[in-house]
Amino acid sequence: MRTLFKDMGLLLWLPITILLAWWFGSANSTSIYFPPLELILETFARDWLGPRFVTDALPSIGKFLVGFGIAAAGGVFLGMLIGLSRRLNAALDPLIQFLRAIPPPAILPIALLLFGIGASMNIAVIALGAIWPALLNTIDGVRALDLQVIDMTKSYRLSPAKRIFKVLLPAASPQIFAGLRVTLQMSIILIVVSEMFASTSGIGFYVLNSQQLFAVPETWAGTIVLGLLGYVATLVFVLIERRVLAWHRGMYNSLEKA
């Protein structure tokens, strides 16, 4: 009990200190750049716990989820196809290496020309820009499948469905998840950037627009929303990853002990 309290104290002193310092340090601030934290939080509550949540936050979250879903599913699916065929991998490798080296936000103008302003443009940018880590990690994971495991699946005549869903995907899953995590981070960056680049609604649009109108508390409040979005998305992802890869952690720990 005692050590628990001590640990809580250790965990909490820094965040609490920072928040208090910010709160009191900015309380009487007259600087236009650093409005009082109280004002920022009031603005946050007024806008984001109110109507804007439905008109701006929900659409942004929706587009982000669809884009991430396409990038993740597409990356894993194509990665399996490419990883299973030596020839396909050899043929596509240089092309993939080049495309993934392009900073994803750089394709924004192309997507804008193709799709115009709207949800499909945001989604397309995420799908095309964030697919690479999922794709490359899936290819690597599939190619690293143990030869003896392959022998086992053949000699026990496992059906193709069993081979893929019970053997291949789980075997590659630690690497796939490592890739998906980067895909997730890139998706968050891209939804924010694409809404800043060309959009008439959404959180990204709201923040950049507030900045251009010199609405400083709104800019701060929007930044906090974007931060929260990134934080929550990562948290949910980590929870899912822990569940799916529980076996992997268990095995790793048992090897550590040995």
Binding site: Q148, V149, D151, Y156, R157, K166, P170, H248, M251
Partner: peptide, 29 residues
Amino acid sequence: PPAKLAVVFQDYSRSLLPWMTVQENVMLP
């Protein structure tokens, strides 16, 4: 691979699948 032939491999740590319980491993084929 013939249907009525089973192989027990040299390296058990690599032929049993670590994401399945023993029971699931035995059931897989």
